[in-house]
Computed example of a mutant assay.
Amino acid sequence: MALARAAARTRQNTLARWRRRLTLTLLTVALLAFTLIVIIPFIWMLLMSVRTTGEILNDPYGLPKTIRWQNYVKLLFDPSIRFYRYFINSVLVTTFALILTIFLATFGGYGFGRRRYEFKFRGTLFTMLLFGLMLPRQILYIPQFTMMSRYGLLNTRWSLVLVYTAMAMPVSTYLMATYFSQLPSELEDAARIDGCSDLGTFWRVMLPLARPALSTVILLNFLSFWNELLLAITMVTKPDLRTLPSAMMMFVGEHGSDYAMAAASLVTAMLPVLILYLILSDKFIEGLTAGAVKG
């Protein structure tokens, strides 16, 4: 009987190992297939950026006969394109919108996330803020355009900065409040014993501990602001103030298209996002998983 039980356990363990291996293999194949689906368009775009438009039209999926780095040189330094001007516009709009969003979201998240800051209608205000997450952005475009027109901010960078900040506030404040709520209150007590004011406690103790959530807010909003198109072409119609997404549209038109330059502009516009993600990737993942486990 003992031998039979041992043999049965051995068979069960063997079957369990094979099930785990099969599951791991299938999961690996699925992840590899998904990775290829995501990466192949980027590789194709990169190859298109070093070809001519004629080559692309004759053989869209072919390899470049000659690598043409001249496309990037023309894109960045040709005075008739002035791509650097649009790049600077995007940098200015994204930077100021990020600074304003981080400033408001960190203070707002700290106030909503720490229980010691109890004030009237605190829960109601936070609920109303979260309600902004459920509203489709498209229904806000007409009111936002009307407001910017009344304030005389159309065709200025500030219109994009203010609208981007307003649209980013609900999710940014929610992420910061969720992270701040998990930090132990003993840290604040120790800071107050050491003589820190409320602002000093926030700046010297709590905000450095919230760097993962802050990195998540920075990266998500940078990606959103940098790639936004519809508001950029609605609020700003002056060519000199165009941002990158709206400027890249000029390479593809009704009467002619320069696909090589369009691909080169896409690769160039993608680089800042890629670099920022590589810098903040560890903190970004930690910030996204904050609140998943409580204990």
Rank of each mutant, 00 (worst) to 15 (best):
T127Q: 07
M45V: 14
L214Q: 02
Y117I: 11
M235L: 15
N227M: 05
L57I: 11
Y110I: 02
F222R: 02
L130P: 05
K238D: 00
K294G: 14
S172K: 12
R157V: 02
Q70N: 14
R211D: 05
S80C: 05
L125S: 10
A247K: 04
L160T: 08
T201M: 03
F180H: 07
F77H: 12
Q138T: 14
L57A: 10
G253N: 11
L47N: 07
M169D: 00
W44T: 14
P212Q: 15
T25E: 15
G291I: 07
L276A: 12
R137H: 08
L36R: 06
A97P: 06
W226R: 04
A177C: 10
V163S: 08
T216D: 04
A247T: 10
P41C: 11
G253C: 02
E186M: 09
I102W: 01
V91N: 06
L160Y: 09
L140M: 15
T28G: 06
L129W: 00
Y164H: 12
P184R: 11
L153P: 14
L98Q: 03
L130V: 14
S224R: 04
V217T: 10
L104C: 01
P143N: 07
G108S: 09
A190K: 08
S181R: 08
D194E: 13
V91F: 12
F131A: 03
S185G: 08
D198V: 13
A260T: 10
N221K: 08
W44Q: 13
V267D: 13
A232R: 03
Y259K: 05
F96Y: 13
E186Y: 11
L153Y: 15
T156C: 04
F284M: 02
A191P: 02
R21I: 00
H255V: 06
L129Q: 00
S246Y: 05
P143Q: 11
T66N: 06
Y61F: 13
W69Q: 00
L244I: 15
